[in-house]
Simulated scan of single mutants.
Amino acid sequence: MENQIYPCLWFDGQAQEAAQFYCSIFKNSKITADNQMVVTFELNGKKFMGLNGGAEFKFNEAVSFVIDCETQKEIDHYWKELTSDGGKEGDCGWLKDKFGMSWQIVPTILPKLLSNPEKAKNVMEAYMKMKKFDIKTLENA
């Protein structure tokens, strides 16, 4: 059996709250173990650990989670949920949730649009002006 690799997210006493928040947003998600120091959970079947490590370390954009979205409805869902309750919109599909974790909400069609030499420049110019991605605008760029 290969060793499983998964992220450990450092929280300032909010690991359980964060796990519950994330599990409420993603289908096929659950908390698998929980104690005062550590909570393990799965999001869409992928394992995560939340650690109540204290105030010493904070999240930053050096690490982000990418959510590939097939539809505008999916983009809208994740954007709304992850920016709720104090989350912050960023540029070009990026946001920070209320815990400070960075997320990229990306339409799966974007690489195809950017690989089209006739459209790539216009698509890039369009998405550089966006916060939340709009698939129709990108397709029509």
Rank of each mutant, 00 (worst) to 15 (best):
I109P: 00
I25P: 03
D134W: 01
M37G: 05
K121P: 00
D12L: 06
V38R: 08
F99E: 09
K129D: 05
N60L: 00
T40M: 14
L51S: 07
A55R: 08
H77E: 10
F59W: 03
N28S: 07
Q36W: 05
F57E: 10
G90Q: 08
M49Y: 05
M49A: 14
C92W: 06
D76C: 01
F65C: 10
K46A: 13
M1C: 11
D91I: 06
A18K: 02
Q14R: 15
S84P: 07
S64D: 07
W103F: 14
C69G: 11
Q104H: 13
P107I: 11
L51T: 01
K129G: 00
P107L: 09
E139Y: 04
K73Y: 01
L138T: 05
E125M: 12
E118C: 01
G50P: 11
N60F: 00
Q16P: 00
F26G: 03
D91C: 01
K132L: 04
G45Q: 04
G100V: 10
I31H: 01
E139W: 03
K98P: 08
I67R: 10
G53P: 13
K30P: 00
M128A: 03
G13T: 03
G50N: 06
W94T: 03
I31D: 01
D76F: 00
S84D: 14
W103S: 07
A62F: 10
S29D: 08
